[in-house]
Structure formats: structure tokens, C-alpha cells
Design a protein around this nucleic acid. Structure first.
Lengths: 126, 126
DNA sequence: CTCCAAGTTGACGTTAACGTACACTTAGAC
DNA sequence: GTCTAAGTGTACGTTAACGTCAACTTGGAG
């Protein structure tokens, strides 16, 4: 059996050093779904699946994406498209994102070299 | 002689596909300085130097940095530190930024592979 | 000189991504 | 059962990064 551990909202929050409000906000936005919520209890409870999703969201934020963009990417991860047209649309989206990311990496490398050059300048002058 | 061309605010704006308001805002924030402003005229005028700065700012934004972070980096570019302590502080800052950028590039590469994997999944199922 | 498109200074409006405060409700220790 | 720390929904507050509007001023074409 897969040992399923569940988390309260504040456990999850301190786990990633964010506030409970933030998690509730992500849920409002439809980026997270607390599982047991639909059944008996009134309090949220999160599984490892949700923990992983939250991690994805926070990584996305660190990389400078908006919550909307992150949502789109996560939807890509979890989509199960029917018709061929749907599949093609998704593949196109993926290709677009891949291109954007490549460009972003390129720009970061340029920025890196620039900063390095300036750093050297100060070392030289020492 | 270096052929110096000057630009009005709207020229610069359309050049980068942003609004004049945005440029004025950056100036308010101390990220840009229209040159002729200090002298006779009342209207802003920008040189190539300012054009390059604006380009730097917009690149930074694309990469997900806040205007404050961008300002700090530009200050690094243009700082001329006096004492040894100042130099060391700047070098430390540069090193920190370089590390952050490396981490960012790494995360982007991971994200890239993830998206690629999911893309493949849809191709397979076709 | 005259005219008007373009620029300027406030000042208030807007959106994303939460923070904060409040008046409840819930759940686990005793 | 009860008590309290933790959770909930609702709603208003906040900050960054501009948008927008109004009432002027400026400067280049004619």
C-alpha cells in the first residue's frame, strides 16, 4: 500500500514558508484542490499530490511567471485531451513555452556574463 | 565625433512598444534620467545611453526581476566605489546575483525537460 | 505670430497577489 | 463535555507597476 500522509493547511504553509492565506488564495484561483474538502469535514486537508502541485506553483513564481501562466502550464501537465485538434493545440502551446524558456535562459546567460565582467573590473582596480 | 542622436519620450516609447507613462514612471523611480532636463528645456530628451538603460530595464522585467532588483543591478554596472569595503560589498552582491541566476537557469532547464516530456506523451498517444 | 499635436505635472483608478482583521466553527487534548 | 488553538468565510487594506484623465505648457510647421 502507498503510505498516504495528509497535511493541514498550516503544516503545508510552514513546509514552504508561506502563509495559509496564500494557499487558500491559490485554491480560490483554482490552482489547488484540497481533497477531503468535498466529503465530510469542513477543514482542508492536503495529500502529497497537492504538495507537489504547490511546489510547482512556487517554482514557477520564483522563475517570474504569473499565477495565470503557471496555471496554464499545470493544466498542460494534467490535461487529457480528446480529439486530435485538442492535442495539437496543446503541443503548440508546449512548443511556444519551450521557445520562451530557451530565450529566457539565453538572456540570463548574457546577463550573467555582463555581471561577471563588471565584477572583474572591480577586482582589477583593487 | 560620435554622432549623438536624441529622442523624444514618445519616440523612445514606440521604439520599445511601451507607453510614455512607463518611461516617466521609471524616471520617477530614479531608474532613468533624461539629460537635457537639467538645463534649458522643459521637455525630456533621451540619448543613446538612456536608450541602452531602458533596454536593460525591459530585459530585466522579462526575466522576472522587480524594478527594485533591476535598479540594484544597474547601480552595480555604474557604481564607482571608493574604499576597499565598498568594492568588497559590490563584489559580494555580484556573486550573490550570479548564484541566483545560475539557480534560475538550472530550474528553467528542469522545467524545460518536464514540458518536453509531457509534450512527448501527447505525441506518443496520437 | 499662431496653432495644435505632443509633452508635463498632479491625482486618482486598476490589477495581481496576497496581508490583515473579524466573527464564527472545528477538532483534538484534557 | 469543554476549552483553546487552529481553521473558515467575508471583506476590506496594501504594494508594485503602471493606466487614465484633466488642466496646463511647449515647440515646431506654416
Amino acid at each position: 500500500m502507498t503510505e498516504e500522509k495528509f497535511f493541514t493547511i498550516s503544516e503545508l504553509a510552514s513546509m514552504f514558508d508561506i502563509s495559509s492565506r496564500t494557499i487558500r488564495y491559490y485554491e480560490e484561483m483554482g490552482m489547488l484542490t484540497s481533497i477531503t474538502r468535498e466529503s465530510l469535514t469542513k477543514q482542508r486537508s492536503y495529500s502529497n499530490t497537492e504538495r507537489r502541485r504547490l511546489k510547482l506553483i512556487l517554482r514557477g513564481k520564483k522563475l517570474g511567471f504569473s499565477l495565470q501562466e503557471i496555471k496554464e502550464m499545470i493544466d498542460l501537465y494534467e490535461s487529457n485531451p480528446e480529439g486530435k485538434a485538442e492535442k495539437e493545440r496543446i503541443i503548440e502551446f508546449a512548443d511556444k513555452k519551450l521557445k520562451e524558456i530557451d530565450e529566457q535562459i539565453l538572456q540570463l546567460q548574457i546577463l550573467k556574463e555582463e555581471i561577471f565582467t563588471h565584477r572583474e573590473r572591480f577586482l582589477q582596480e583593487k
